[in-house]
């Protein structure tokens, strides 16, 4: 079993990152190619200034007017996305492993704080699932795969939480934790998770058009 754990905490991590980066590169490249063949004119008004302005405006909680109309949803969504990145990147256990393998390390969250933040991430995901089940206009747009994606995001956090507390099936929990974490990374370029990259790209597109063509703000 140690040999299997060695594999999933060693080579498999590299493989997952490789697929992630290659996938992202290919998809962004294809997108640019497609834009070039179908909507070449948009490059004529593309602007870094308006792109970055739009991306930045949408990163500031509640700056965009539409986000103020549903403050609960957007508040939870902002917090969720922040924690989704912050908790894994600044988690002590992850840094401990990185320190051993590459000699890299940076500041880490206190374990008990990370514990609470993990619960917040899980609660946010429960909220998203409940919202899809209950709010008619969201329900209408929901496919069953949406719940699957919520589950895929939830699993590494849930199993990480359970493993940290060493409640039961410790080894199994950690193994599922590692595998689902890697699965999520691999899936990003090929699924809805790609909105991680599409969102800023479409903000740049909209921002440029509003700034340069319509001379208006897009938030």
């Amino acid at each position: 079993m140690n040999a299997f754990i060695d594999f999933i905490t060693g080579p498999m991590v590299w493989i997952s990152f490789l697929i992630f980066f290659a996938g992202v590169f290919i998809r962004v490249f294809r997108l640019a190619q497609e834009a070039n063949s179908k909507e070449k004119f948009m490059f004529s008004y593309f602007s870094w200034k308006y792109s970055l302005r739009s991306i930045f405006a949408w990163l500031v909680p509640f700056l965009p007017a539409s986000t103020r109309q549903s403050p609960v949803f957007w508040g939870i969504s902002y917090l969720f996305h922040l924690l989704l990145f912050m908790v894994p990147i600044f988690l002590l256990s992850h840094i401990v492993l990185l320190e051993e393998s590459l000699g890299w390390s940076w500041i880490s969250l206190n374990d008990s704080i990370a514990d609470v933040l993990t619960v917040l991430v899980i609660l946010a995901l429960v909220f998203f699932a409940v919202r899809r089940l209950n709010v008619p206009e969201v329900k209408f747009l929901t496919r069953s795969s949406d719940y699957l994606f919520i589950l895929i995001v939830a699993l590494p956090f849930l199993t990480g939480f359970l493993a940290y507390h060493q409640f039961f099936f410790y080894r199994t929990m950690v193994i599922i934790h590692i595998l689902t974490g890697e699965l999520m990374l691999i899936l990003i370029p090929f699924t809805r998770f790609f909105h991680m990259f599409l969102a800023p790209i479409s903000r740049a597109y909209t921002g440029s058009e509003f700034g340069n063509v319509r001379q208006a703000r897009d938030w």
Binding site: N2, Q166, Y170
Partner: peptide
């Protein structure tokens, strides 16, 4: 040696 603990909680 493929023996002994390797996970944090072990």
């Amino acid at each position: 040696t493929n023996k002994g603990p390797v996970l944090c909680g072990e």
